[in-house]
Write a protein that binds this DNA or RNA. Structure first.
Length: 574
RNA sequence: CGGGGCGUAGCGUAGUGGCUAGCGCGCCUGCUUUGGGAGCAGGAGACCGAGAGUUCGAAUCUCUCCGCCCCGACCA
Protein backbone atom coordinates (compact mmCIF):
# COMPACT_ATOMS: atom_id res chain seq x y z
CA UNK A 1 0.00 0.00 0.00
CA UNK A 2 1.25 3.42 -0.89
CA UNK A 3 0.71 5.77 2.04
CA UNK A 4 0.86 9.42 1.14
CA UNK A 5 1.92 10.25 4.69
CA UNK A 6 5.25 8.55 4.13
CA UNK A 7 5.56 8.34 0.35
CA UNK A 8 8.67 9.99 -1.04
CA UNK A 9 6.74 12.51 -3.05
CA UNK A 10 6.48 16.24 -3.42
CA UNK A 11 4.04 17.55 -5.98
CA UNK A 12 4.64 20.95 -7.50
CA UNK A 13 2.03 23.63 -7.77
CA UNK A 14 3.75 25.35 -10.70
CA UNK A 15 4.88 23.93 -14.00
CA UNK A 16 8.63 23.53 -14.17
CA UNK A 17 10.06 26.21 -16.43
CA UNK A 18 12.09 23.81 -18.55
CA UNK A 19 9.15 21.61 -19.51
CA UNK A 20 7.04 22.23 -22.54
CA UNK A 21 5.10 19.13 -23.50
CA UNK A 22 2.30 17.79 -21.30
CA UNK A 23 3.90 14.50 -20.36
CA UNK A 24 7.09 16.20 -19.24
CA UNK A 25 5.28 18.95 -17.32
CA UNK A 26 2.90 16.61 -15.55
CA UNK A 27 5.38 13.85 -14.79
CA UNK A 28 7.59 16.41 -13.10
CA UNK A 29 4.75 18.21 -11.32
CA UNK A 30 3.23 14.98 -10.06
CA UNK A 31 6.60 13.87 -8.72
CA UNK A 32 7.22 10.96 -11.09
CA UNK A 33 10.53 12.06 -12.56
CA UNK A 34 13.28 14.60 -12.00
CA UNK A 35 15.81 15.87 -14.47
CA UNK A 36 19.47 15.08 -13.82
CA UNK A 37 21.01 16.44 -17.03
CA UNK A 38 19.80 17.14 -20.54
CA UNK A 39 17.90 14.05 -21.66
CA UNK A 40 18.71 12.15 -18.45
CA UNK A 41 16.05 11.60 -15.81
CA UNK A 42 15.60 9.89 -12.47
CA UNK A 43 12.51 7.90 -11.64
CA UNK A 44 10.97 8.74 -8.29
CA UNK A 45 8.77 6.16 -6.54
CA UNK A 46 5.54 6.92 -8.39
CA UNK A 47 7.33 7.12 -11.71
CA UNK A 48 9.25 3.95 -11.13
CA UNK A 49 6.13 2.00 -10.19
CA UNK A 50 4.43 3.22 -13.35
CA UNK A 51 7.49 2.45 -15.43
CA UNK A 52 7.68 -1.06 -13.99
CA UNK A 53 4.01 -1.66 -14.72
CA UNK A 54 4.68 -0.93 -18.37
CA UNK A 55 7.78 -3.09 -18.31
CA UNK A 56 5.74 -5.89 -16.76
CA UNK A 57 3.10 -5.80 -19.48
CA UNK A 58 5.76 -5.87 -22.17
CA UNK A 59 7.64 -8.70 -20.50
CA UNK A 60 4.47 -10.74 -20.05
CA UNK A 61 3.59 -10.41 -23.71
CA UNK A 62 7.09 -11.24 -24.89
CA UNK A 63 7.16 -14.30 -22.68
CA UNK A 64 3.67 -15.30 -23.79
CA UNK A 65 4.89 -15.23 -27.38
CA UNK A 66 7.63 -17.64 -26.41
CA UNK A 67 10.51 -15.19 -26.59
CA UNK A 68 13.34 -15.65 -24.11
CA UNK A 69 14.80 -12.87 -22.04
CA UNK A 70 18.51 -12.23 -21.69
CA UNK A 71 20.46 -9.29 -20.36
CA UNK A 72 23.59 -7.77 -21.83
CA UNK A 73 25.90 -5.23 -20.25
CA UNK A 74 25.39 -1.57 -21.13
CA UNK A 75 29.12 -1.08 -21.47
CA UNK A 76 30.49 -2.92 -24.45
CA UNK A 77 33.83 -3.37 -26.16
CA UNK A 78 34.64 -1.72 -29.46
CA UNK A 79 35.45 -4.78 -31.58
CA UNK A 80 31.98 -6.07 -32.49
CA UNK A 81 30.89 -2.61 -33.51
CA UNK A 82 34.06 -2.29 -35.53
CA UNK A 83 33.13 -5.39 -37.51
CA UNK A 84 29.75 -4.04 -38.53
CA UNK A 85 31.29 -0.64 -39.16
CA UNK A 86 29.01 0.99 -36.64
CA UNK A 87 31.83 2.30 -34.48
CA UNK A 88 32.30 4.69 -37.41
CA UNK A 89 28.74 4.90 -38.74
CA UNK A 90 27.15 5.83 -35.44
CA UNK A 91 29.41 8.85 -35.28
CA UNK A 92 29.04 11.35 -32.46
CA UNK A 93 25.78 9.77 -31.28
CA UNK A 94 27.78 7.00 -29.68
CA UNK A 95 28.86 7.45 -26.07
CA UNK A 96 32.46 6.27 -26.04
CA UNK A 97 34.79 5.75 -23.15
CA UNK A 98 38.19 4.27 -22.40
CA UNK A 99 39.40 2.05 -19.66
CA UNK A 100 42.66 2.67 -17.74
CA UNK A 101 44.67 0.88 -20.39
CA UNK A 102 43.27 3.06 -23.14
CA UNK A 103 40.97 0.37 -24.49
CA UNK A 104 37.87 1.65 -26.32
CA UNK A 105 34.41 0.94 -24.99
CA UNK A 106 30.94 2.23 -25.73
CA UNK A 107 27.62 2.54 -24.01
CA UNK A 108 25.30 0.43 -26.12
CA UNK A 109 22.91 2.39 -28.35
CA UNK A 110 21.35 -0.89 -29.55
CA UNK A 111 22.54 -4.46 -29.42
CA UNK A 112 22.31 -6.23 -32.79
CA UNK A 113 25.99 -7.13 -32.65
CA UNK A 114 25.85 -8.62 -29.19
CA UNK A 115 22.81 -10.75 -29.92
CA UNK A 116 24.30 -11.98 -33.18
CA UNK A 117 27.55 -12.91 -31.49
CA UNK A 118 25.76 -14.56 -28.61
CA UNK A 119 23.85 -16.83 -30.95
CA UNK A 120 26.97 -17.49 -32.98
CA UNK A 121 28.70 -18.63 -29.81
CA UNK A 122 26.04 -21.16 -28.92
CA UNK A 123 24.25 -22.35 -32.01
CA UNK A 124 25.44 -23.87 -35.27
CA UNK A 125 22.56 -25.96 -36.61
CA UNK A 126 19.36 -25.20 -38.48
CA UNK A 127 17.66 -27.43 -35.93
CA UNK A 128 18.09 -24.70 -33.33
CA UNK A 129 16.12 -22.20 -35.39
CA UNK A 130 13.91 -20.26 -35.27
CA UNK A 131 15.07 -18.43 -32.17
CA UNK A 132 13.61 -15.33 -30.55
CA UNK A 133 15.42 -13.56 -27.74
CA UNK A 134 14.97 -10.18 -26.15
CA UNK A 135 16.18 -7.91 -23.43
CA UNK A 136 14.96 -4.85 -21.59
CA UNK A 137 17.95 -2.59 -21.38
CA UNK A 138 19.10 0.92 -20.79
CA UNK A 139 20.40 2.37 -24.03
CA UNK A 140 22.60 5.37 -24.58
CA UNK A 141 22.60 7.73 -27.50
CA UNK A 142 24.23 11.10 -27.39
CA UNK A 143 21.35 12.71 -29.24
CA UNK A 144 22.14 15.96 -30.99
CA UNK A 145 19.07 17.35 -29.32
CA UNK A 146 17.39 15.61 -26.44
CA UNK A 147 13.81 16.78 -26.34
CA UNK A 148 10.43 16.77 -24.67
CA UNK A 149 11.51 15.27 -21.37
CA UNK A 150 11.35 11.54 -21.39
CA UNK A 151 10.15 11.23 -24.99
CA UNK A 152 13.63 11.61 -26.35
CA UNK A 153 16.33 11.08 -23.81
CA UNK A 154 20.01 10.34 -24.13
CA UNK A 155 19.55 7.51 -21.71
CA UNK A 156 16.38 5.51 -22.19
CA UNK A 157 15.05 2.02 -21.76
CA UNK A 158 14.25 -0.10 -24.74
CA UNK A 159 12.94 -3.59 -25.14
CA UNK A 160 14.78 -5.02 -28.10
CA UNK A 161 14.26 -8.46 -29.53
CA UNK A 162 15.86 -10.35 -32.35
CA UNK A 163 14.76 -13.26 -34.44
CA UNK A 164 17.02 -15.78 -36.13
CA UNK A 165 15.85 -17.88 -39.05
CA UNK A 166 17.28 -20.05 -41.75
CA UNK A 167 15.34 -18.61 -44.66
CA UNK A 168 13.05 -15.84 -45.81
CA UNK A 169 9.87 -17.74 -45.08
CA UNK A 170 11.06 -18.24 -41.51
CA UNK A 171 11.89 -14.55 -41.18
CA UNK A 172 8.43 -13.62 -42.45
CA UNK A 173 6.85 -15.85 -39.83
CA UNK A 174 9.03 -14.44 -37.06
CA UNK A 175 8.27 -10.92 -38.19
CA UNK A 176 4.57 -11.64 -38.11
CA UNK A 177 4.83 -13.22 -34.69
CA UNK A 178 6.47 -10.11 -33.32
CA UNK A 179 3.94 -7.93 -35.03
CA UNK A 180 1.13 -9.78 -33.28
CA UNK A 181 2.91 -9.64 -29.92
CA UNK A 182 3.32 -5.88 -30.33
CA UNK A 183 -0.35 -5.44 -31.13
CA UNK A 184 -1.29 -7.25 -27.93
CA UNK A 185 1.26 -5.30 -25.92
CA UNK A 186 0.21 -1.85 -27.08
CA UNK A 187 -3.45 -2.73 -26.73
CA UNK A 188 -2.87 -3.68 -23.12
CA UNK A 189 -0.91 -0.52 -22.50
CA UNK A 190 -4.00 1.41 -23.51
CA UNK A 191 -2.25 3.22 -26.33
CA UNK A 192 -3.91 4.41 -29.49
CA UNK A 193 -1.54 3.69 -32.34
CA UNK A 194 -1.21 3.11 -36.05
CA UNK A 195 0.99 0.55 -37.71
CA UNK A 196 2.75 2.44 -40.40
CA UNK A 197 4.86 1.37 -43.35
CA UNK A 198 8.39 2.60 -42.79
CA UNK A 199 11.71 2.73 -44.58
CA UNK A 200 14.22 0.29 -43.24
CA UNK A 201 16.82 2.97 -43.82
CA UNK A 202 20.09 2.82 -41.94
CA UNK A 203 19.32 -0.56 -40.43
CA UNK A 204 19.21 -2.22 -43.81
CA UNK A 205 16.76 -4.97 -44.54
CA UNK A 206 13.61 -5.49 -46.48
CA UNK A 207 10.46 -4.85 -44.50
CA UNK A 208 9.82 -2.43 -41.71
CA UNK A 209 6.86 -0.99 -39.85
CA UNK A 210 6.56 1.58 -37.12
CA UNK A 211 4.03 1.64 -34.30
CA UNK A 212 3.09 5.28 -33.99
CA UNK A 213 1.04 6.73 -31.13
CA UNK A 214 -0.75 9.78 -32.55
CA UNK A 215 -0.35 12.91 -30.49
CA UNK A 216 0.18 16.54 -31.44
CA UNK A 217 3.52 16.80 -29.65
CA UNK A 218 4.94 13.78 -31.48
CA UNK A 219 8.05 14.15 -33.57
CA UNK A 220 7.13 11.83 -36.38
CA UNK A 221 4.98 12.76 -39.34
CA UNK A 222 2.98 10.13 -41.11
CA UNK A 223 0.17 9.90 -43.62
CA UNK A 224 -3.09 8.19 -42.91
CA UNK A 225 -5.96 7.31 -45.21
CA UNK A 226 -9.09 7.60 -43.13
CA UNK A 227 -11.08 5.71 -45.71
CA UNK A 228 -9.09 2.50 -46.11
CA UNK A 229 -6.67 2.70 -43.19
CA UNK A 230 -3.49 2.87 -45.24
CA UNK A 231 -0.77 4.43 -43.10
CA UNK A 232 2.81 5.22 -43.92
CA UNK A 233 5.73 7.20 -42.69
CA UNK A 234 6.07 10.15 -45.08
CA UNK A 235 9.33 8.70 -46.32
CA UNK A 236 7.67 5.42 -47.21
CA UNK A 237 4.53 6.92 -48.77
CA UNK A 238 4.06 5.64 -52.29
CA UNK A 239 2.84 8.08 -54.89
CA UNK A 240 -0.37 7.26 -56.67
CA UNK A 241 -0.32 8.63 -60.20
CA UNK A 242 -3.63 8.72 -61.93
CA UNK A 243 -3.12 7.83 -65.56
CA UNK A 244 -4.83 10.16 -67.96
CA UNK A 245 -5.18 10.42 -71.72
CA UNK A 246 -2.56 12.71 -73.10
CA UNK A 247 -2.72 14.04 -76.63
CA UNK A 248 0.65 14.15 -78.38
CA UNK A 249 2.02 17.59 -77.58
CA UNK A 250 3.45 19.95 -80.20
CA UNK A 251 7.18 20.11 -80.74
CA UNK A 252 9.34 21.76 -78.11
CA UNK A 253 9.21 25.53 -78.28
CA UNK A 254 11.90 27.69 -76.75
CA UNK A 255 10.57 30.94 -75.29
CA UNK A 256 12.08 34.19 -74.09
CA UNK A 257 11.39 34.40 -70.39
CA UNK A 258 13.59 37.17 -69.01
CA UNK A 259 14.21 37.31 -65.26
CA UNK A 260 12.36 34.14 -64.36
CA UNK A 261 14.73 32.18 -62.14
CA UNK A 262 11.89 31.08 -59.85
CA UNK A 263 8.69 29.19 -60.52
CA UNK A 264 6.55 32.13 -59.40
CA UNK A 265 8.28 34.58 -61.69
CA UNK A 266 8.11 32.10 -64.56
CA UNK A 267 4.37 31.55 -64.17
CA UNK A 268 3.81 35.31 -64.07
CA UNK A 269 5.72 35.90 -67.32
CA UNK A 270 4.05 32.94 -69.02
CA UNK A 271 0.63 34.28 -68.16
CA UNK A 272 1.57 37.74 -69.41
CA UNK A 273 3.36 36.79 -72.66
CA UNK A 274 2.05 33.39 -73.65
CA UNK A 275 -1.67 33.53 -72.91
CA UNK A 276 -3.23 32.92 -69.50
CA UNK A 277 -4.09 29.86 -67.53
CA UNK A 278 -0.63 28.72 -66.48
CA UNK A 279 0.04 27.65 -62.94
CA UNK A 280 3.04 26.32 -61.06
CA UNK A 281 1.77 22.80 -61.64
CA UNK A 282 2.44 23.16 -65.37
CA UNK A 283 6.11 23.75 -64.80
CA UNK A 284 8.90 21.37 -64.04
CA UNK A 285 11.42 21.98 -61.26
CA UNK A 286 14.90 20.65 -61.87
CA UNK A 287 16.46 20.18 -58.49
CA UNK A 288 20.22 19.68 -58.53
CA UNK A 289 21.82 17.80 -55.69
CA UNK A 290 25.12 16.30 -54.72
CA UNK A 291 24.77 12.62 -53.87
CA UNK A 292 27.96 11.30 -52.28
CA UNK A 293 29.89 13.84 -54.31
CA UNK A 294 28.14 13.16 -57.63
CA UNK A 295 25.78 15.71 -59.21
CA UNK A 296 22.27 14.43 -59.87
CA UNK A 297 19.09 16.10 -61.07
CA UNK A 298 15.64 15.37 -59.71
CA UNK A 299 12.45 16.43 -61.48
CA UNK A 300 9.36 17.44 -59.53
CA UNK A 301 6.27 19.46 -60.50
CA UNK A 302 6.77 23.20 -60.05
CA UNK A 303 4.06 23.40 -57.41
CA UNK A 304 5.72 20.86 -55.14
CA UNK A 305 8.70 21.01 -52.80
CA UNK A 306 11.46 18.45 -52.61
CA UNK A 307 11.75 16.53 -49.32
CA UNK A 308 15.47 15.83 -49.20
CA UNK A 309 15.18 13.41 -46.33
CA UNK A 310 12.50 11.42 -48.09
CA UNK A 311 14.44 11.54 -51.33
CA UNK A 312 17.55 10.24 -49.65
CA UNK A 313 15.63 7.42 -48.00
CA UNK A 314 14.41 6.38 -51.42
CA UNK A 315 17.78 6.64 -53.18
CA UNK A 316 19.17 3.42 -51.88
CA UNK A 317 22.82 3.46 -51.01
CA UNK A 318 23.23 7.24 -50.93
CA UNK A 319 24.90 8.23 -47.69
CA UNK A 320 25.16 11.97 -48.09
CA UNK A 321 22.69 14.07 -50.01
CA UNK A 322 22.52 17.84 -50.18
CA UNK A 323 21.15 20.54 -52.40
CA UNK A 324 23.42 22.33 -54.88
CA UNK A 325 25.17 25.33 -53.44
CA UNK A 326 26.56 28.39 -55.22
CA UNK A 327 29.97 26.75 -55.31
CA UNK A 328 28.56 23.74 -57.16
CA UNK A 329 26.97 25.95 -59.80
CA UNK A 330 30.27 27.77 -60.14
CA UNK A 331 32.05 24.57 -61.15
CA UNK A 332 29.33 23.50 -63.60
CA UNK A 333 28.85 26.52 -65.87
CA UNK A 334 26.56 24.60 -68.24
CA UNK A 335 23.96 24.39 -65.46
CA UNK A 336 22.28 27.79 -65.55
CA UNK A 337 20.71 28.37 -62.17
CA UNK A 338 17.00 29.00 -62.59
CA UNK A 339 16.93 27.83 -66.20
CA UNK A 340 17.89 24.17 -65.99
CA UNK A 341 15.92 21.65 -68.06
CA UNK A 342 16.15 17.89 -68.35
CA UNK A 343 16.66 17.89 -72.13
CA UNK A 344 20.45 18.00 -71.93
CA UNK A 345 20.97 15.88 -68.86
CA UNK A 346 22.82 13.18 -70.76
CA UNK A 347 25.02 15.74 -72.49
CA UNK A 348 25.82 17.25 -69.11
CA UNK A 349 26.54 13.84 -67.64
CA UNK A 350 23.83 14.24 -65.03
CA UNK A 351 22.05 11.26 -63.61
CA UNK A 352 18.37 12.13 -63.99
CA UNK A 353 15.64 11.11 -61.58
CA UNK A 354 11.95 11.96 -61.67
CA UNK A 355 9.22 11.95 -59.10
CA UNK A 356 6.47 9.55 -60.23
CA UNK A 357 4.28 12.58 -60.89
CA UNK A 358 6.47 13.25 -63.94
CA UNK A 359 4.90 10.38 -65.83
CA UNK A 360 6.01 9.25 -69.26
CA UNK A 361 4.04 11.18 -71.88
CA UNK A 362 3.47 14.28 -69.75
CA UNK A 363 4.81 17.58 -71.05
CA UNK A 364 6.10 20.53 -69.09
CA UNK A 365 7.34 24.06 -69.13
CA UNK A 366 10.93 23.91 -68.03
CA UNK A 367 14.30 25.60 -68.33
CA UNK A 368 16.00 25.70 -71.74
CA UNK A 369 19.49 25.51 -70.24
CA UNK A 370 20.09 29.07 -71.37
CA UNK A 371 19.86 32.24 -69.32
CA UNK A 372 16.40 33.87 -69.56
CA UNK A 373 14.94 31.12 -71.72
CA UNK A 374 12.46 28.37 -70.99
CA UNK A 375 10.94 25.69 -73.18
CA UNK A 376 7.45 24.26 -73.35
CA UNK A 377 5.95 21.01 -74.57
CA UNK A 378 9.02 19.29 -73.18
CA UNK A 379 7.78 15.72 -73.07
CA UNK A 380 8.93 12.84 -70.92
CA UNK A 381 9.88 9.95 -73.20
CA UNK A 382 10.21 12.12 -76.28
CA UNK A 383 12.43 15.02 -75.24
CA UNK A 384 14.11 13.51 -72.22
CA UNK A 385 14.54 10.14 -70.58
CA UNK A 386 15.07 9.60 -66.89
CA UNK A 387 17.41 7.06 -65.36
CA UNK A 388 14.86 6.19 -62.69
CA UNK A 389 11.74 7.28 -60.90
CA UNK A 390 12.15 8.17 -57.25
CA UNK A 391 9.85 9.44 -54.50
CA UNK A 392 11.02 13.00 -54.05
CA UNK A 393 8.29 15.50 -53.23
CA UNK A 394 7.27 16.61 -49.79
CA UNK A 395 4.01 14.83 -48.99
CA UNK A 396 1.03 17.11 -48.50
CA UNK A 397 -2.37 16.50 -46.97
CA UNK A 398 -4.74 15.66 -49.80
CA UNK A 399 -2.23 13.57 -51.75
CA UNK A 400 -3.86 10.39 -52.93
CA UNK A 401 -3.84 7.13 -51.03
CA UNK A 402 -1.94 4.54 -53.07
CA UNK A 403 -4.52 1.92 -52.16
CA UNK A 404 -7.90 3.56 -52.53
CA UNK A 405 -7.09 6.91 -54.15
CA UNK A 406 -8.84 9.04 -51.54
CA UNK A 407 -7.02 12.02 -50.07
CA UNK A 408 -4.79 11.26 -47.11
CA UNK A 409 -4.33 13.30 -43.96
CA UNK A 410 -1.03 14.11 -42.31
CA UNK A 411 -0.69 13.55 -38.59
CA UNK A 412 1.95 13.62 -35.88
CA UNK A 413 2.87 10.79 -33.56
CA UNK A 414 5.37 9.36 -31.12
CA UNK A 415 7.21 6.29 -32.35
CA UNK A 416 6.71 3.66 -29.66
CA UNK A 417 7.79 0.59 -31.56
CA UNK A 418 9.59 -0.41 -34.71
CA UNK A 419 9.87 -3.81 -36.33
CA UNK A 420 12.44 -4.69 -38.99
CA UNK A 421 13.01 -7.65 -41.18
CA UNK A 422 16.76 -7.09 -41.03
CA UNK A 423 17.94 -9.81 -43.32
CA UNK A 424 21.51 -11.01 -43.37
CA UNK A 425 23.54 -7.84 -42.95
CA UNK A 426 24.62 -8.45 -39.36
CA UNK A 427 24.86 -12.20 -39.69
CA UNK A 428 27.13 -11.74 -42.70
CA UNK A 429 29.39 -9.17 -41.09
CA UNK A 430 29.72 -11.22 -37.94
CA UNK A 431 29.73 -14.53 -39.75
CA UNK A 432 26.73 -16.09 -38.11
CA UNK A 433 26.08 -19.29 -40.05
CA UNK A 434 24.42 -22.61 -39.35
CA UNK A 435 24.54 -25.92 -41.16
CA UNK A 436 21.38 -26.72 -43.07
CA UNK A 437 19.89 -30.20 -43.44
CA UNK A 438 22.28 -30.94 -46.28
CA UNK A 439 25.24 -30.04 -44.13
CA UNK A 440 25.89 -26.83 -46.02
CA UNK A 441 26.80 -23.62 -44.22
CA UNK A 442 24.15 -20.92 -44.50
CA UNK A 443 24.02 -17.35 -43.27
CA UNK A 444 21.20 -16.78 -40.81
CA UNK A 445 18.57 -14.15 -41.49
CA UNK A 446 17.51 -11.83 -38.71
CA UNK A 447 14.76 -9.54 -37.53
CA UNK A 448 15.08 -6.73 -35.02
CA UNK A 449 12.18 -5.38 -33.00
CA UNK A 450 12.12 -2.48 -30.54
CA UNK A 451 9.77 -0.93 -28.04
CA UNK A 452 10.60 2.31 -26.27
CA UNK A 453 9.79 1.35 -22.70
CA UNK A 454 10.56 4.63 -20.97
CA UNK A 455 9.15 6.49 -23.93
CA UNK A 456 5.91 4.54 -23.54
CA UNK A 457 5.45 6.17 -20.12
CA UNK A 458 5.48 9.54 -21.83
CA UNK A 459 3.38 8.40 -24.78
CA UNK A 460 0.65 7.08 -22.50
CA UNK A 461 0.78 10.25 -20.43
CA UNK A 462 0.47 12.32 -23.62
CA UNK A 463 -2.55 10.41 -24.82
CA UNK A 464 -4.42 10.14 -21.53
CA UNK A 465 -3.79 13.34 -19.56
CA UNK A 466 -6.21 16.26 -19.27
CA UNK A 467 -5.98 19.88 -18.05
CA UNK A 468 -5.77 18.94 -14.40
CA UNK A 469 -3.32 16.10 -14.49
CA UNK A 470 -2.36 12.59 -15.47
CA UNK A 471 -4.95 9.87 -15.95
CA UNK A 472 -3.56 6.37 -16.31
CA UNK A 473 -5.07 3.21 -17.70
CA UNK A 474 -5.85 0.71 -14.96
CA UNK A 475 -2.97 -1.60 -15.64
CA UNK A 476 -0.38 1.17 -15.72
CA UNK A 477 -1.37 3.49 -12.86
CA UNK A 478 0.85 3.59 -9.76
CA UNK A 479 -2.25 2.41 -7.91
CA UNK A 480 -5.59 1.29 -9.25
CA UNK A 481 -7.53 2.87 -6.39
CA UNK A 482 -6.70 6.16 -4.70
CA UNK A 483 -8.40 6.48 -1.34
CA UNK A 484 -8.63 9.92 0.25
CA UNK A 485 -9.49 10.34 3.90
CA UNK A 486 -10.67 13.80 4.94
CA UNK A 487 -11.79 15.34 8.21
CA UNK A 488 -10.23 15.86 11.61
CA UNK A 489 -11.56 12.87 13.44
CA UNK A 490 -10.04 9.43 13.40
CA UNK A 491 -13.14 7.78 11.97
CA UNK A 492 -12.71 8.54 8.25
CA UNK A 493 -9.06 7.58 8.49
CA UNK A 494 -9.93 4.29 10.12
CA UNK A 495 -12.64 3.59 7.57
CA UNK A 496 -10.28 4.49 4.69
CA UNK A 497 -7.64 2.21 6.11
CA UNK A 498 -10.14 -0.60 6.35
CA UNK A 499 -11.33 -0.10 2.75
CA UNK A 500 -7.76 0.01 1.54
CA UNK A 501 -6.98 -3.31 3.16
CA UNK A 502 -10.08 -4.96 1.75
CA UNK A 503 -9.42 -3.74 -1.76
CA UNK A 504 -5.82 -4.81 -1.54
CA UNK A 505 -6.90 -8.21 -0.30
CA UNK A 506 -8.80 -8.56 -3.57
CA UNK A 507 -5.56 -8.22 -5.46
CA UNK A 508 -5.84 -4.55 -6.36
CA UNK A 509 -3.25 -1.85 -5.73
CA UNK A 510 -4.10 1.04 -3.46
CA UNK A 511 -2.74 4.48 -2.67
CA UNK A 512 -4.04 5.86 0.62
CA UNK A 513 -3.97 9.57 1.35
CA UNK A 514 -3.67 9.33 5.12
CA UNK A 515 -2.09 12.72 5.63
CA UNK A 516 -3.57 14.35 8.75
CA UNK A 517 -2.16 17.80 8.07
CA UNK A 518 -3.21 18.32 4.46
CA UNK A 519 -6.49 20.03 3.65
CA UNK A 520 -9.14 18.26 1.55
CA UNK A 521 -8.46 20.63 -1.35
CA UNK A 522 -4.81 19.65 -1.43
CA UNK A 523 -5.67 15.97 -1.37
CA UNK A 524 -8.18 16.27 -4.20
CA UNK A 525 -5.75 18.23 -6.35
CA UNK A 526 -2.98 15.74 -5.71
CA UNK A 527 -5.23 12.80 -6.50
CA UNK A 528 -6.21 14.37 -9.81
CA UNK A 529 -2.64 15.29 -10.66
CA UNK A 530 -1.28 11.83 -9.87
CA UNK A 531 -3.94 10.26 -12.06
CA UNK A 532 -4.96 6.95 -10.51
CA UNK A 533 -8.11 5.73 -12.27
CA UNK A 534 -10.49 5.27 -9.31
CA UNK A 535 -10.72 7.77 -6.49
CA UNK A 536 -12.60 6.94 -3.31
CA UNK A 537 -13.29 9.75 -0.85
CA UNK A 538 -14.00 8.95 2.75
CA UNK A 539 -15.26 12.05 4.54
CA UNK A 540 -18.39 14.14 4.82
CA UNK A 541 -20.75 11.52 3.41
CA UNK A 542 -19.77 9.11 6.15
CA UNK A 543 -22.52 10.61 8.34
CA UNK A 544 -25.00 8.98 5.96
CA UNK A 545 -22.98 5.81 5.81
CA UNK A 546 -21.66 6.67 2.37
CA UNK A 547 -18.40 7.29 0.55
CA UNK A 548 -17.84 9.11 -2.70
CA UNK A 549 -16.64 7.24 -5.77
CA UNK A 550 -15.01 9.11 -8.62
CA UNK A 551 -13.79 8.05 -12.03
CA UNK A 552 -10.71 10.07 -12.82
CA UNK A 553 -11.03 9.78 -16.58
CA UNK A 554 -14.70 10.73 -16.99
CA UNK A 555 -14.98 12.96 -13.95
CA UNK A 556 -18.08 11.01 -12.96
CA UNK A 557 -18.85 11.09 -9.21
CA UNK A 558 -21.42 9.30 -7.15
CA UNK A 559 -22.03 8.34 -3.56
CA UNK A 560 -22.19 4.69 -2.65
CA UNK A 561 -23.04 2.95 0.59
CA UNK A 562 -19.98 2.15 2.66
CA UNK A 563 -20.88 -1.55 2.77
CA UNK A 564 -21.00 -1.85 -1.01
CA UNK A 565 -18.00 0.40 -1.70
CA UNK A 566 -15.50 -2.43 -2.14
CA UNK A 567 -17.79 -4.33 -4.48
CA UNK A 568 -18.48 -1.21 -6.52
CA UNK A 569 -14.79 -0.42 -6.83
CA UNK A 570 -13.89 -3.94 -7.85
CA UNK A 571 -16.68 -3.92 -10.43
CA UNK A 572 -15.05 -0.90 -12.07
CA UNK A 573 -11.70 -2.63 -12.30
CA UNK A 574 -12.56 -5.64 -14.40
C1' C B 1 25.96 22.05 -35.75
C1' G B 2 22.83 26.68 -37.42
C1' G B 3 18.79 30.09 -35.37
C1' G B 4 16.10 31.98 -30.81
C1' G B 5 15.74 32.29 -25.46
C1' C B 6 17.16 31.49 -20.36
C1' G B 7 20.40 30.76 -15.77
C1' U B 8 18.59 34.71 -8.72
C1' A B 9 16.51 29.49 -2.17
C1' G B 10 13.69 22.78 -3.41
C1' C B 11 9.90 24.98 -7.30
C1' G B 12 7.89 29.49 -9.80
C1' U B 13 9.70 34.43 -10.13
C1' A B 14 10.89 40.33 -9.15
C1' G B 15 15.04 43.11 -9.31
C1' U B 16 18.97 47.09 -16.02
C1' G B 17 25.13 50.44 -11.61
C1' G B 18 23.97 52.26 -5.15
C1' C B 19 22.59 50.76 1.20
C1' U B 20 20.69 44.33 4.61
C1' A B 21 18.57 40.72 -2.94
C1' G B 22 12.26 41.09 -2.76
C1' C B 23 7.72 38.08 -3.42
C1' G B 24 4.55 33.44 -3.97
C1' C B 25 4.56 28.09 -3.30
C1' G B 26 6.99 24.51 -0.43
C1' C B 27 9.75 23.69 4.45
C1' C B 28 10.17 24.47 10.30
C1' U B 29 7.54 26.26 15.25
C1' G B 30 2.93 27.71 17.68
C1' C B 31 -2.32 28.57 17.70
C1' U B 32 -6.74 28.26 14.79
C1' U B 33 -8.78 25.44 10.57
C1' U B 34 -10.53 20.43 7.69
C1' G B 35 -15.05 18.93 0.96
C1' G B 36 -11.43 22.07 -3.58
C1' G B 37 -4.10 23.87 -3.50
C1' A B 38 -6.73 27.20 4.61
C1' G B 39 -5.77 31.71 8.34
C1' C B 40 -2.65 34.37 11.77
C1' A B 41 2.14 34.94 14.10
C1' G B 42 7.18 33.71 14.12
C1' G B 43 11.39 31.28 11.53
C1' A B 44 15.17 28.59 8.42
C1' G B 45 16.81 28.57 3.57
C1' A B 46 20.68 32.23 -2.05
C1' C B 47 29.07 32.37 -2.48
C1' C B 48 22.51 35.80 -7.79
C1' G B 49 25.70 29.25 -13.13
C1' A B 50 31.59 29.72 -13.15
C1' G B 51 35.87 32.65 -14.10
C1' A B 52 38.14 37.11 -15.60
C1' G B 53 37.54 42.32 -16.43
C1' U B 54 35.44 47.63 -16.11
C1' U B 55 34.05 50.64 -11.66
C1' C B 56 34.67 54.09 -5.50
C1' G B 57 30.68 50.36 -5.93
C1' A B 58 28.34 44.63 -10.18
C1' A B 59 22.78 39.95 -9.69
C1' U B 60 22.77 44.37 -13.01
C1' C B 61 27.97 46.50 -17.82
C1' U B 62 32.07 43.65 -20.99
C1' C B 63 34.59 39.08 -22.35
C1' U B 64 35.28 33.81 -21.92
C1' C B 65 33.51 29.29 -20.36
C1' C B 66 29.67 25.99 -18.46
C1' G B 67 24.66 24.47 -18.13
C1' C B 68 19.48 24.38 -19.65
C1' C B 69 15.05 25.09 -22.90
C1' C B 70 12.71 25.91 -27.77
C1' C B 71 12.82 25.74 -33.58
C1' G B 72 15.58 23.01 -37.82
C1' A B 73 19.28 18.22 -39.99
C1' C B 74 18.97 12.00 -36.63
C1' C B 75 15.97 7.87 -33.76
C1' A B 76 12.82 3.55 -29.42
Amino acid sequence: MLRMSTLFLRTLRDDPSDAEVASHRLLVRAGYIRRIAAGIYSWLPLGYITYRNIERVIREEMDAAGFQEVHFPSMLPREPYEKTNRWEEYGPDLFRLQDRKGGDYLLGPTHEEMFTLMVKGEYSSYKDLPLHIYQIQTKFRDEPRPRSGIIRGREFVMKDSYSFDLDDAGLDASYEKHRQAYIKTFDRLGLKYNIVAAMSGAMGGSRSEEFLAPCPTGEDTYVLCEKCGYAANVEAMITKVLSKEIATPPAVEVMDTPNTPTIDSLVEVMNKNYGGGFSAGDTLKNILLMADGVAISVLVPGNREVDVKRLQANLSGVKELRLFEEADFATRKELVKGYVGPQDAQKFGLKLYADPRIAVGTHWITGANQLNKHARYVTHGRDFQVDAFVEAVEIEAGDLCPKCESPVIIDRAIEIGHIFALGRKYAENLDLTVLDHEGKSRVVTMGSYGIGVSRAVAAIAEQTHDEIGLSWPIEIAPAQVHIVATGKDDQPFNVAEDLAKKIEASGRTVMLDDRRDASPGVKFKDAELIGNPIILIVGKALIDGKVELRIRKSGEKREVALESAVTEVLALLV
